[in-house]
Design a protein around this nucleic acid. Structure first.
Lengths: 343, 343
DNA sequence: ATCCGCTATTGAAACCTTTCAATGCGCGGA
DNA sequence: TCCGCGCATTGAAAGGTTTCAATAGCGGAT
């Protein structure tokens, strides 16, 4: 109980401050601050003594005060599209690990593809004066991002490009990814290919689809069909595959826009008694862990997610150090991972 | 916009403060603060006027200063065992949604089952003076948790119980869950059941296994075998199932300690040509989305994850409001979800 | 003995918001 | 005309840290 604690340790409501430490150690607050932030400036004797006092009193720095004085939060904010898609949590993990090396905390939010939720997080990060922001934008946030940057918050866009040269970004070469997937299917003899994913307007869908189309066009007798979906989850994949099975001219390969869709496709085919890969091959995109763990291990176009996270943080920290630096777009290479589902 | 404002007011590097707003609006800082925090105390005319000025100047409250003065951060910290397991991200999502209703930010960290990483997060949360903490403990953190609470941070344990009556907790009835799974397998005629999961020392494993054993013992001719694993991921499930297939006396049903393990089991069986559910039935635990999306949709014992998150936050906010309140253990009911994998 | 130069330490100011006792103001009642 | 009341507003203090110009202390050189 708070009151009894109070009785025990004197004044329970107030926590130990640098002032208390200074008094107990017989030094000034400035020295205590130096012990915490620039230990090399302090004589060894004093250093050790003060550290002992800190330990004994259980002093813990109040970060709010530090922030207030320093004018900026050490934390980095991140707004992710969908925490339920392992693709994004894997990126977040990469981010978090890299950040840990710099002793910076991560404040993570999921917009769930909702512009309003995204905006709420931006409000929050603005009040918090985070020093950097990682975002996969949903709504029209460019003006907000500009404002944030004007106020000294570095911004890096993840898994998207802004079009303008304003903000640094990290993404994977979707054209190359689409090419890899299509080439692989064609080389293993498939000719009637379906691409399932959407919505059509997404840049990434456009790139992957267009690249696949080019590859298919280059092969005699090969055809590519586009089955558009509204979202990119397993349900969408399942429905898309069911539609294909119900219609005429069943394909002999399916290129799913991501692994969640591919898992749905696999389910629909399995339940319909279609053999994978004998009757229909499946390839996904992202190479999340669940692709490798599927009943029929799924081939996929691997996006190096941890590396994306790391690269994003490196760009961000660079931008924090030098706000005037030129924005950079980092484009990482995807990699074909062949598993059972494409024979 | 902002830049021209900045130019007007002299120093562009400094952001707009309540003082600036007060000066521009011709009121005192106290009134501005009231506009922000107790609008009902301000006359309608003044209120609107000040709000306009805030808008025009693009003022955003500095949360560090608010925290410093208020003595506590509105944020809630959460340390999760493993962000890669959807079970935990689903709980986190429930937490986040409930928190959003209260306009409180969530700072999320993943300990990855590593006591050191867990400790780093506790350091961070302590410096941040978060008002509440949600944790699924890994290491020996009881003393830390006590200290945090002494300092005014409310603590709720998630998906575990502390044993002592010190901290509130939210968990699911594992005994009941184990019972449900075993009963279901027995009722559908299975007699040679294997339980895959571990490590043995985990309370949850003990409960689920022991309950299942009791059910099996109650049925003539039924047997339960325990295949212990070191972790609970798909790989472990795959290896466990392979061992079972290689040995004599193949089981006719497998109860996996969680869905990740179950997915691994499904893969091993599928690749070995064992028919699910005809030859071997599989049931998992948690009912993550991937269970429903598996090639053979997996039966599972559903843990109400979003509700766990919500309940945890409700307990936490109650503890923040009344630190002296008695700790409460909330135990939620699991639910049997039957799908194809148990026929 | 005196002074110089260097390092280690000091202590007050600044960061921005919230709080709250005090003040100002307008209005109805005497 | 004056008083008192209630409401709206004021403005200074407080919160804990970091920063930095100023000071103290010390050894060595002259």
């Amino acid at each position: 109980m708070t009151t009894s604690e109070a009785a025990k340790s004197g004044d329970p409501s107030r926590s130990v401050s640098v002032k208390d430490v200074a008094a107990a150690a017989g030094v000034s607050v400035g020295t205590v601050s130096n012990v915490l932030n620039r230990p090399e400036k302090v004589s060894p004797t004093t250093l050790e003594h003060v550290q002992q006092v800190i330990e004994r009193l259980g002093f813990v720095r109040n970060d709010a005060a530090r922030q207030l004085r320093a004018g900026t939060n050490r934390a980095i904010g991140m707004v992710v599209l969908d925490v339920r898609n392992p693709f994004f949590t894997d990126i977040a993990r990469g981010v978090e690990l890299r950040l840990a090396e710099h002793r910076r905390p991560l404040i993570l939010g999921s917009s769930d593809q909702d512009a309003e939720r995204e905006s709420t997080y931006l409000d929050l990060f603005e009040e918090q004066r985070v020093s950097g922001l990682l975002i996969t934008p949903v709504g029209k946030v460019l003006p907000r991002l500009r404002r944030l940057r004007e106020r000294g918050t570095a911004v890096v866009v993840v898994d998207r490009r802004t079009g303008s040269r304003e903000f640094s970004s990290v993404a994977v070469d979707d054209v190359r990814g689409g090419r890899l997937a299509a080439q692989h299917l064609l080389e293993s003899g498939r000719r009637r290919i379906a691409f399932i994913g959407g919505p059509r307007g997404l840049t990434q869908i456009k790139h992957r689809l267009h690249a696949a189309q080019e590859e298919v066009d280059a092969v005699d007798g090969a055809r590519l069909r586009f089955v558009e979906t509204g979202t990119m989850d397993a349900d969408a994949g399942r429905r898309g595959a069911e539609d294909l099975l119900a219609g005429p001219d069943r394909p002999d390969a399916i290129f799913a826009a991501n692994d969640l869709v591919a898992l749905g496709v696999l389910q629909a085919l399995t339940l319909a008694g279609v053999r994978v890969p004998e009757d229909v091959a499946i390839i996904g995109f992202d190479d999340i862990d669940f692709a490798a763990s599927a009943a029929i291990p799924l081939s996929s176009v691997r996006q190096p997610r941890a590396e994306m996270g790391r690269a994003a943080i490196d760009l961000l920290l660079a931008a924090i150090d030098d706000p005037a630096a030129q924005a950079r777009d980092i484009v990482l290479e995807p990699e074909l991972v062949v598993r059972r589902s494409t024979g």
